[in-house]
């Protein structure tokens, strides 16, 4: 009964992942049936140490899953600002747009994750990209009643001008 590399990554089992990688380094970029890599599982479950370990081993943070999900969108949706910043530090595309109709910023707004919104804006996330259904980050914040995020977005706009 052994866990897959994806489950081990999600559960933060760094030493076990290291052991698996030493036997088969291709596991680093192994995508599951939906296209998710171990790095994406770790990002989705907020495993910061695992994310850093996998990046150090050379995991590609730019890989996207079948529906164009990325490690950055998963971390932004989960509100894991430390992982968001780690990924942004590795040159990922900050405005990846997936088939679910969202960018990392839109997911952070949707999840009411103020610090993630701030981190993404500070790194130049595009506030004009709308969701599939036509919601900009600002319109989404207003519609969801996420007042603090609305304020962060307004302050950011004021800073731009």
């Amino acid at each position: 009964d052994s866990l897959s590399i994806h489950q081990l990554a999600a559960q933060g089992e760094v030493s076990q992942v290291a052991a698996h990688l030493s036997k088969d380094s291709s596991l680093l970029s192994r995508q599951d049936e939906r296209g998710f890599t171990p790095l994406m599982w770790a990002a989705a479950f907020g495993e910061k140490a695992m994310v850093d370990f996998l990046l150090e081993k050379g995991a590609d943070p730019k890989t996207v899953a079948r529906e164009r999900e990325s490690a950055l969108t998963l971390a932004s949706s989960g509100g894991y600002v430390d992982i968001v910043e780690s990924l942004l530090g590795h040159g990922v595309d900050i405005d990846t747009y997936d088939w679910n109709g969202g960018t990392p910023l839109l997911y952070a707004v949707r999840g009411n994750h103020v610090k993630c919104v701030e981190a993404l804006l500070a790194k130049g996330a595009d506030m004009t990209i709308e969701s599939d259904s036509g919601y900009s980050p600002m319109a989404l914040a207003v519609a969801l009643g996420h007042k603090k995020i609305q304020k962060v977005l307004e302050d950011h706009i004021l800073k731009l001008y």
């Binding site: 009964d1 866990l3 489950q7 999600a10 559960q11 599951d32 939906r34 998710f36 994406m40 599982w41 989705a44 479950f45 999900e69 969108t73 998963l74 949706s77 997936d98 679910n100 109709g101 969202g102 839109l106 997911y107 949707r110 999840g111 969701s131 599939d132 259904s133 036509g134 919601y135 319109a139 989404l140 519609a143 969801l144």
Partner: peptide, 21 residues
């Protein structure tokens, strides 16, 4: 030993429940 398995990551539908703009 009982293995605890995490469910596969998924992203929420961003505008679920909101009126279409």
């Amino acid at each position: 030993s009982q293995l605890s398995l995490y469910t596969s990551p998924s992203l929420p539908n961003i505008t679920l429940g909101l009126p279409a703009t």
